[in-house]
Write a protein that binds this DNA or RNA. Structure first.
Lengths: 339, 339
DNA sequence: TTGTACGCGTTATCAG
DNA sequence: CTGATAACGCGTACAA
């Protein structure tokens, strides 16, 4: 393990001081052209890469932001993350990604790690977390943006949408199609405000129509095809059978469609299914899943811009609320006639 | 932006020297219990988090490894990455993830960035990259593991499988089912050895059966449903029409199934489709896609273990070759009878 | 068991 | 335009 070349090595080879090498790297204009070229040559020859830690220590800046997402295992957060990263990279900022596995304690630990690494901004999913975590961030004085959620009087800047309203609207769509026995397969709501708000939205819509979303017709399932399938099989065995399964996300919906097929039921002839998130999966399943389109990439982009604006000293940049829209799909059709 | 608490602040509050605080953090046993408690209290009270850069600078260790993957936008690498991360976390090692967008230059830049951040190990996808990139890594003296690929005399440790052999075997399956007009939708092969090897594997199988995979029946498509669909529409318009579309990955295959449906063709009655990678998508499409199962999580786990072993000083840990297996699926059926 | 003091690689200040 | 040199926060001999 031979020692890496340092600024001093480069300086030595190029016959200049370390200060000059540093300038060539950080403010090339302030160095005479010939000197600059000599230094750049030395850099290339030695394969020199600046030591990030030392640089951070000396300059007290890292040009790094961190994001903590629940999981990388599904495409849900990937698109937005990619957009976030691209936009940050444009401003020469590095994104550090950490995962929490939907575990609040793990999320906190990851936030601590990121803070220790000197991130100058944080992107977090959703709003629900313990007060002391927010205290920690506030104490560090670094900006944080909450994505995938939006609430009028949220004390932190949000870049997201109203999960409750969006869920309500797709449930209303099912009602408008004549469905009355509507069940819901929700994501796990513990520690997950988005999942809970979606349940609330669906419940609101049903109650406005004089229906109830009671325990029997509401099940939670973890984020996987298999869990969605199992939950759907359970619900489809109820009598009277629900005519529509409103799902908390597209993965659960895809599992539900598979379950219906397994049970010998036609979608949407016998039972309708709806999803949420509009990931690629929704278009591939047959019939295509009716879902709620969420502006993944625009959220990522917007979060990046907001963070960069905050970094540039802007005082109170606005939260950004996006609209969602229902994506029609063959999986959601009229309720079957009573027999 | 108030300054973060430092070791010195903690030491001051706890009435000890900075050395003692450092010891409490790194070797608690070497400190008297009462002192330790006082220090820990001070740490908690100040919300102190060690400065990562300074620590790295002083100790010359980071307990960090980096991975560069083509993209996070699809689930392909996510599962393996998650496993990699989990296993590394178990050893208290942090994983830094960067993306290259399938661009060799960008991959090199990301590798440089990671090296600058002091990663003590590298996980890279595939084997194909310019020699000077390997020189760079070798010069740094840090271990690197190549995943998603395997070759007998690869100079770097690999954790993967033989893409060519696996592709050959699924093509042979199509041949065994009587297909003779077989077309392939490959991933983009430029700079992507996995994609190229899969093409080679299919070509081998066809040639062994006296068939050819010529320009007309081989198209490349970028990694997306839409690209797979478009490519398939083009191939299905050929006369005589291919009876089987062998695809370089499941996303392309899903696009191909959608294209067939659009063209009014039955899968597998009129045309068979096969995929590669066995991501969740393959099971959700109807009919389910016959594909090649790749041990995503086991590769991630294995890469982590290999890296940790190398870090622990093991000299030449073995490459690890995994077997793949064909996953049956309704999308691949007997060739239609000649009319 | 604890403290002192130096060095890690870089940036930034201040002279030249 | 360039060069000395003092921080930056932490780990670690070495000394007490």
């Amino acid at each position: 393990m031979k020692p890496l070349p340092t600024l001093a090595d480069v300086a030595c080879l190029a016959q200049v001081s370390t200060a000059t090498v540093s300038r060539v790297l950080n403010a090339p204009d302030r160095v005479r052209e010939e000197t600059r070229r000599r230094v750049q040559e030395a850099v290339a020859q030695l394969g020199y890469t600046p030591n990030f830690g030392a640089r951070a220590l000396a300059s007290n800046r890292t040009r790094t932001v961190g994001a903590v997402i629940p999981t990388m295992e599904n495409a849900i957060f990937a698109r937005g993350l990619q957009a976030l990263q691209e936009e940050l990279a444009r401003a020469d900022v590095t994104l550090l990604v950490a995962t929490s596995n939907y575990d609040p304690a793990r999320e906190e630990a990851q936030i601590r790690t990121l803070l220790g690494r000197g991130v100058e901004g944080l992107v977090l999913i959703g709003e629900e977390r313990e007060a002391h975590v927010y205290d920690l961030i506030r104490q560090r004085g670094i900006p944080a943006v909450l994505v995938w959620t939006w609430r009028a009087d949220c004390p932190w800047p949000c870049v997201g949408f109203d999960n409750r309203a969006s869920a309500r609207s797709i449930a209303e769509r099912a009602l408008a199609l004549g469905h009355r026995r509507i069940a819901m397969i929700a994501g796990v709501t513990a520690g997950n405000d988005r999942a809970r708000q979606r349940v609330e939205g669906v419940r609101e819509a049903l109650e406005a129509a004089g229906l109830r979303l009671d325990g029997d017709l509401l099940v939670e399932a973890e984020y996987s095809l298999a869990a969605g399938r199992d939950a759907a099989l359970g619900l489809l065995a109820r009598r009277p059978r629900p005519t529509a399964l409103v799902c908390g996300n597209d993965v659960l919906a895809a599992g539900a469609v598979a379950a219906a097929r397994e049970a010998g039921l036609d979608v949407p002839g016998d039972v309708s299914v709806s999803g949420f998130d509009d990931i690629d999966l929704a278009k591939v399943v047959y019939p295509p899943i009716a879902t709620v389109h969420v502006p993944h990439r625009r959220m990522g982009l917007s979060a990046a811009r907001l963070l960069l604006a905050l970094d540039a000293g802007e005082r109170r940049p606005e939260s950004r609320r996006f609209d969602t829209e229902i994506v029609e799909g063959g999986s959601l059709g009229p309720a079957p006639a009573e027999r």
